[in-house]
């Protein structure tokens, strides 16, 4: 090893070495300046839905990559005893109007002008599914929480929406359209995705989205829309409240 190391010693004219040194520094300074310039160019790019355009492109490429490797792996499950009783409430977008509990219906737009309207009783007739998982907020905190409702996949199957689920996305909106999300179909059809009407075995509290909310363990909390009003199918990305404000559209695990 020492021999090999010593082979790296060479003798050369002093001016030769000095010239190499100067060239190396000029190249270094040019590359350094190019890096600073590149950074400034990047920072001055126009934005696409709140994110710098080149970065939005990378976020979308990341989405493509992780959509292609998506499998129906489950989010880790926990015993119900581990679920917290004080469930964090982080936002009330789309919940500002008083809830219309007698008139509320889940609207599922089958096609333009053809909307399936379901009452909470209709939904509760389907098999009940419990999900206890680590709810993860995009802010960085997480909580083990317990939700019950109906598997979204089973509900879509029960109502024969087989053609509709061939579209790429599902859009969801609150009744006042104040909050809205878009979700890729493979996450919609994930076995742990439910429309929840209970939290910790009791009807959803108002601030948790009574009467019905989305629970989708393969996504950040921003996608778990509370108080669902309307659902619709689309091949294009449906509007998404936080994706319009600079966040990653996919926001999935």
């Amino acid at each position: 090893m020492e021999n090999q190391w010593n082979q790296r010693i060479s003798e050369q004219p002093r001016h030769n070495a000095n010239r190499k040194l100067i060239i190396a520094f000029i190249v270094f300074l040019i590359l350094g300046a190019a890096a600073v310039y590149g950074w400034q160019v990047l920072k001055s790019q126009p934005t696409d839905n709140g994110a710098l355009k080149p970065l939005r492109k990378v976020l979308n490429a990341n989405e493509k990559l992780f959509t292609s490797t998506f499998s129906n792996k489950l989010s880790a499950s926990y015993p119900t005893t581990e679920a917290v009783s004080r469930v964090r409430v982080n936002g009330n977008y789309g919940l500002k109007d008083p809830v219309d509990s007698s008139g509320w219906k889940l609207n599922i737009v089958r096609s333009a002008g053809d909307t399936l309207k379901l009452t909470l009783e209709d939904i509760k007739k389907l098999p009940k599914k419990d999900v206890v998982f680590d709810f993860k907020c995009i802010e960085g905190w997480s909580q083990v929480t317990h939700w019950s409702g109906v598997s979204l996949k089973e509900l879509l199957k029960y109502y024969h929406l087989t053609e509709q689920v061939k579209e790429n996305y599902l859009g969801l909106q609150t009744p006042d359209k104040g909050y809205y999300v878009g979700i890729d179909m493979q996450s919609v059809l994930h076995p742990q995705t439910i429309l929840a009407y209970e939290m910790n075995g009791k009807p959803l509290p108002l601030n948790q989205g009574y009467p019905l909310r989305l629970i989708i363990p393969v996504k950040y909390g921003i996608k778990h829309l509370k108080r669902i009003g309307t659902m619709f199918f689309s091949d294009q990305k449906p509007p998404d409240y936080w994706a319009e404000r600079g966040y990653d559209y996919y926001a999935g695990f």
Binding site: A51, P54, L55, V58, L59, I138, E139, W242, G246, Y247
Partner: peptide
């Protein structure tokens, strides 16, 4: 600046 941070983080991670 959470959204901005995430957009840089998940691009420069590559």
């Amino acid at each position: 600046r959470l959204a901005e941070g995430m957009s840089f983080h998940f691009a420069f991670m590559w």
